[in-house]
């Protein structure tokens, strides 16, 4: 049943003009970056800036509006003899697959074609696409959670924007304040630790470490690399990202199962 609902939702989402625009936007941007910049590392860095700002925002807003537009239909589905569980997972997969497809077509394809011709920075390129997909999944989970937590459409949108703002700018702002205040202390390890808590920072640093710019980050990069270099560090990074996907999804699931529509 989950599969059936997921297929139906996915088909509906894929018909959305906004998703088409999103795909087209990334396709145009990625292709033009590869055309106009001669340096693949410059392409990746420009793409990174874009991914960190646009992917979370679009995933968040798109999912929030879709779920609220289809609120009545979800309720109607629940009156049918289908389990809540399969309705939830149906929507989760149904939303995730088209969003991931959009990224794969918009960014993955141009990057893959580029990689066929130039092997330089292949790991960073792959990380770029995988990172964007992880961020999509994380913000999708957050959006589903927020959507079921708030009855009011405006409230849900506002809180979604707030979460996006916090993770994108506020968290880093606070990190900067901490670094400035504690400048008398060797703060690098602590700062690296804090960056593990924010998926955007983690994805960004993971990517930067694969590139030349890591040398500009001096001691901080060394700390990060040393930590990532051992099994515990890699495990911690993967776990942190998986928790960021699993925790909001689990909260949303719990909320959905108990919710009195």
């Amino acid at each position: 049943m989950t599969g059936k609902i997921a297929r139906w939702v996915a088909r509906d989402v894929l018909r959305s003009i906004w998703l088409g625009l999103y795909t087209f936007f990334f396709l145009i941007i990625t292709l033009s970056f590869f055309t106009f910049f001669d340096d693949p590392s410059r392409v990746l860095l420009s793409l990174l800036n874009l991914v960190l700002m646009v992917v979370p925002l679009v995933s968040m807003i798109f999912v929030l509006t879709y779920l609220h537009n289809n609120r009545n239909f979800i309720v109607l589905t629940l009156t049918q003899p289908v389990s809540r569980r399969s309705v939830f997972w149906g929507y989760w997969w149904g939303l995730a697959i088209p969003l991931q497809l959009a990224l794969l077509v918009g960014m993955g394809l141009p990057v893959a074609f580029h990689l066929l011709a130039h092997r330089a920075l292949w790991l960073a390129s792959v990380l770029q696409v995988v990172g964007a997909m992880l961020l999509t999944q994380i913000f999708l989970g957050l959006a589903i959670w927020l959507s079921f937590a708030h009855e009011d459409r405006l409230k849900a949108l506002a809180s979604g924007l707030l979460v996006w703002l916090s993770l994108t700018f506020l968290y880093d702002g606070l990190l900067l304040v901490v670094i400035l205040l504690a400048s008398a202390y060797p703060i690098e390890k602590f700062a690296v630790g804090l960056s593990f808590l924010n998926p955007l920072d983690l994805v960004r640093l993971l990517l930067l470490m694969q590139m030349d710019v890591a040398a500009l980050m001096g001691f901080t990069a060394e700390v990060f690399k040393k930590f990532l270099g051992n099994a515990v560090g890699t495990l911690a990074a993967v776990t942190a990202l998986l928790i960021w996907i699993a925790f909001p999804t689990w909260m949303a699931f719990r909320n959905f199962m108990k919710k009195d529509f």
């Binding site: 960190l52 900067l176 960004r204 640093l205």
Partner: peptide, 20 residues
């Protein structure tokens, strides 16, 4: 300037905050 005075701040290189 921030990075010059507070080297650990370089952890924010290429972040949306730097852009901001």
């Amino acid at each position: 300037q921030l990075v010059e005075q507070y080297p650990p701040a370089v952890i924010l290189l290429h972040s949306p905050l730097e852009f901001l």
